[in-house]
Amino acid sequence: MHNFNYHRPNNVADAVTALGGAGDGKIIAGGMTLVPTLKQRLAAPSDLIDLNGIADLKGIKAESDGITIGAMTRHAEVAASSLVKSAIPALAELAELIGDRQVRNRGTIGGSLANNDPAADYPAAILGLGATVRTNKREIAADDFFQGLFETALEEGEIITAVHFPKPEKAAYRKFAQPASRFALIGVFVAKTKGGIRVAVTGGGNGVFRATDIETALAANFTPAAAKGVKLDPADFNGDLHGTPEYRAALVSTMAARAVEAC
């Protein structure tokens, strides 16, 4: 990897300052995607601003009929959190399925969201639960946050501080892992929320999206068979070595049905 200047601020304001002062600064959270990217020399930032020293960004707390997870909270903490397990068990289960043990010990929810990998797990939960992404500047609704392949609503100098998840009536996540990388070939998060049924799909295309056809079917009849019966259009899915668009489309219905069964 190319060399860079390293900053380790203690608070968000200093992080923003450091980012503003850098020629081509990049934020590092867990680093589980960024460090491999730097190693492959696919990115060469002038400065790295490390958020690991900011205590305010860590931790899980109960808040207004739901839970709030600090941006620098590790996946392993979410997976093991009794607070998360009691309020939204599906979220803890999803966190347990991210990467491997070592990735979970280091990777963070904020990093995962800011990166918005099209095959990442967390975006499915954020969108599926209709969570709110909090930044140093504002609150962003999940439906507005994800904007396509590695693109988010985050503006320059904007740092995710926390994510607020409203408690759903029920929810579940089912993932079919790409055999080599173990990222989601297809992951489906199904939630029965106050605002209705939400079904979020990761791994299918250029980023997480809501499977509205399945939402409609499940609103009418919340059963595995109803989800399984929805045939999605393969044209909306990408294809690669591990899955054709047809396969991915079919897996969405299958994984959605299994998630409903687990709800």
Binding site: P179, A180, S181, F183, L241, H242
Partner: peptide, 16 residues
């Protein structure tokens, strides 16, 4: 090479 890393070349792991 399309399978040029462990992200695409499927190595058998313990749970396989």
């Amino acid at each position: 090479l399309l399978t040029g890393s462990y992200m695409d070349y499927t190595m058998p792991r313990a749970d396989d």
